[in-house]
């Protein structure tokens, strides 16, 4: 909403801060789902725990791998995941960069950082032919953790992709069919799976997971406060 940082903007592209500010409460795409379908609290018998990581900003980077690699190394200090299906985690434990297609990457950063990072990337990219889009409002991140075996079985019921550990090691992520919709399925480490879900399908996926996870006594951790205030 401000042009204070416009000195960082080389001036060829219109940029604006889509984040309404940390003091303004934002509603998660799952707000209505929690209300309508409930959120069973995790208990001692829960083998799977679901948690929405709402306090994230999502950016789509498009362009040539070589120029983008240089820019993300400069701005984020990581190499671009250049191999198909590759997922790279940043040292902060929150941010990540994922290969989506030969000229497209998904960058997830902590809430409120997207605008600064976009400006820094644009400054580093100069006049290279690239596109950077803020898509935080269009999707959300769901995290599944718990018993590896139960998670495996839950995913086998839901996705057409082979999620066997041999075929889907940590550090991999794919866009695939999930319960008749599509989402990004990724495995940041041994104990967690992440789903990047479209906002308009978030309720459907949430209810699907509650249903499919019922036999594993799936529990939902809700971040009490609305995002914004906490971030």
């Amino acid at each position: 909403m401000s042009d204070i940082k416009s000195d960082l903007n080389p001036g060829t592209v219109n940029t604006y801060d889509a984040c309404p500010g940390a003091d303004i409460a934002q509603e998660s795409p799952l707000a209505w789902s929690y209300l309508n379908s409930g959120a069973p609290a995790p208990g001692p018998s829960s083998r799977i725990v679901m948690r929405e990581q709402a306090a994230r900003d999502h950016l789509i980077l498009r362009g040539g791998a070589i120029v983008i690699d240089e820019a993300v190394r400069q701005v984020l200090g990581i190499n671009l995941p250049a191999r198909p299906q590759q997922l790279t985690l940043c040292d902060d434990g929150v941010s990540s960069l994922q290969w989506l297609s030969p000229d497209e990457w998904l960058l997830i950063v902590p809430f409120g950082q997207a605008y600064n990072i976009e400006l820094e990337l644009r400054a580093a990219l100069g006049d290279a032919s690239v596109a950077i889009s803020e898509v935080s409002g269009g999707q959300t991140l769901l995290e599944l953790s718990g018993d590896a075996d139960a998670l495996q079985q839950l995913l086998m019921k839901s996705v057409i992709y082979d999620t066997h550990p041999q075929h889907f090691p940590p550090g991999k992520g794919v866009t695939t069919v999930f319960a008749k919709t599509s989402l990004i399925l990724r495995r940041p480490d041994d104990s967690r799976w992440e789903l990047v879900v479209r906002r308009s399908f978030a309720d459907y996926v949430y209810r699907w997971l509650l249903d499919a996870g019922d036999e594993f006594a799936i529990g939902v951790i809700r971040d009490g406060a609305q995002q914004g205030a906490s971030a």
Binding site: P84, Q85, S101, P102, I160, Y161, V174, T176, V177
Partner: peptide, 17 residues
């Protein structure tokens, strides 16, 4: 169902995709 090799993803994927 069968699998198709995507030359960009560089792996075999479900025909449904």
């Amino acid at each position: 169902m069968f699998h198709i090799y995507c030359p960009y993803c560089e792996e075999w994927r479900e025909e449904e995709e």
